[in-house]
Simulated scan of single mutants.
Amino acid sequence: MTTETVTGPAEPVHARIPDTTAGGTVILLNGTSSSGKTSIARELLSVLDGTWFHMPVDAFHGMRGGHALPGDDVQAEIDRTCKGFHRAVAGMAAGGNRLVVDYPLSSPWRLLDLLDLLDPQNTVLIGVHCPLPELERRERERGDRQHGLAATQYDHVHAHGVHDLDIDTSLHSPAECALRIRDVLTDRPRPTAFERLRRSLRP
């Protein structure tokens, strides 16, 4: 008596989920509003090897539509947007994509949430600094930012104290900052800032 192995039809190629061999690198630019994060991100895309995505949180806020919420509900909506943004960043990185993320860690929960979501070995945390008087001057000059936003964020975005690299945009141009970040990528500090922060804040 012989036995036969019954197999189903071959899975069509277009139905297969592509493999992801490894997660992608995340460069997280952390600084206040008007500190120069977006300008640095644009320069990075021109000097880094290969394909990178620029993911600014402002783009997610810009997708919001519908009717404005009452004032008491605005912060809750901002927090929901940021939580979704965190998961979008983590999902893109998990898919093997390389990202430049433009985002202020202006509340402790934002850092804690990202420590849980991102691969600490593949996250490069950059502190984007600028003196407050210069931030306020830029706000006035630009005219497209809430006046005083940088001041409200100033004491919070770098409160955790640990970055893989700190840069001052009042001293260096966006292009110079981008080159310094590129150099850090080739010789990353070990343990990374995210690894150290996870150990201290997520024991």
Rank of each mutant, 00 (worst) to 15 (best):
H172R: 12
L114H: 02
A41Y: 04
G84C: 03
D116R: 14
V13G: 02
C177M: 06
R142P: 10
P120Q: 05
D113P: 00
D73P: 00
T3P: 00
E141M: 10
A193L: 05
R180L: 15
V6G: 00
I40S: 08
P133G: 07
L105S: 07
A76T: 08
R80W: 04
L165F: 09
L118M: 09
T81Y: 00
D155K: 11
A88L: 14
D72H: 12
M1Y: 03
E4V: 13
P203H: 03
S173N: 03
G65H: 05
D102A: 05
G91N: 12
P174T: 10
E136Q: 15
Y154D: 14
C130D: 04
A76W: 10
R182E: 12
E141N: 11
A76V: 02
R87N: 12
I27Q: 06
L165Y: 07
L112F: 01
N30R: 02
M55H: 09
G24D: 09
M63R: 11
I126H: 08
L29S: 08
I27H: 08
V162S: 01
T7A: 09
A10P: 03
F60G: 00
G71Q: 11
D49C: 03
L28S: 07
G71W: 02
H86L: 05
D144H: 11
D164W: 08
P9Y: 02
L115F: 07
G95E: 12
H163I: 00
A15E: 13
E176P: 00
M55V: 15
L115K: 10
Q121T: 10
A193E: 04
T192R: 10
S34H: 04
A94K: 12
D168R: 12
S106L: 02
L69K: 09
R198D: 02
I40F: 03
L197S: 07
R137A: 15
A15M: 11
F85I: 06
R87K: 15
V128C: 07
T20K: 09
F85E: 06
H147C: 00
A150M: 08
H160Q: 15
H156N: 13
G143S: 09
L69H: 04
G91A: 14
A175V: 05
L112Q: 13
A15C: 06
T51A: 12
L28Y: 10
T7S: 11
T3D: 06
P191S: 05
G71L: 10
I27V: 15
D183T: 14
L45I: 13
S33T: 15
Q121V: 04
E134L: 14
P191C: 02
K83L: 10
R198E: 05
W52V: 05
T192H: 04
D113V: 03
K37T: 06
L118R: 07
P108S: 06
P120E: 02
D164T: 08
A88S: 12
D183L: 04
S34W: 01
V74N: 06
A90G: 07
P133S: 07
L99T: 05
D116C: 03
R64I: 12
Q153G: 10
F194P: 06
G161L: 09
D73Q: 14
L112G: 01
P120A: 04
I126C: 06
E195P: 01
L197H: 09
T20E: 11
A59H: 12
R145Q: 13
L45E: 14
V89F: 04
G84S: 11
D19L: 12
H160I: 09
D79N: 13
G96E: 08
L149K: 12
R199W: 00
E11L: 14
T25Y: 04
V57L: 12
V6D: 04
